[in-house]
Amino acid sequence: MTRWGMVIDLDKCVACQSCTAACRMENNTPVAGKNQADMGRTILWNEVLPLANSESPDASEMLIPRPCMHCDDPPCVKVCPVQATYRTDEGVVLINYDRCIGCRFCTVACPFQVRYFNWFEPEWPEALKAHLNPDPEVAPRPRGVVEKCTFCVQRLRKARETAQAEGRPFSATDYVPACVETCTAHARYFGDLDDPNSLVSQLAASPRAFRLQEEMGTKPKVYYLKQG
């Protein structure tokens, strides 16, 4: 069985935030506006975060892109009282927006703070609605539900359809999420962690590899490679 995972090489990453923008345009996350942004309610599934290390002598800083970690042991799934959020057989953590009751237990449970709550009906100025991605999986989420990175589940579906239409078996290299496709430094890798020959599984075994908050035991499937 495929187990989707991602590797982000911080030594190659140039913190250009293209992943952030590509994610928004692919997944129809709404514009928050200044008022809501000031309250920390911007919905960016794939934000680049500045981390200052105040303890180091030269006050070093890091810039870390942070998608959903798609944990193998996801705390968000455990706390969901209505089973709206779930982990697929391929290891992707998804949300069934129709079931979500907006209790935000998952938002609190997530150690990586990647889950965003829709405080309002998503709004765009009328003209801007034209560019929304028409794929059904990313139809704008209604008010009162939680949303987050899906590893671009619509792209996975389309890649499978293409393989089927072309009469060939689906391969794990047939699809990448929008952030991986657009990455200006080619710093992101995506693929099957269970395939020992895949690039991601080899990079995940690199001595430079680490995961965020590994000590929490959630087994994230997004690996980082150290800078420098």
Partner: peptide, 10 residues
């Protein structure tokens, strides 16, 4: 590849 400005061209 495409930078964030290109992404937001729409």
């Amino acid at each position: 590849v495409c930078c964030l400005k290109g992404q937001t061209a729409l």
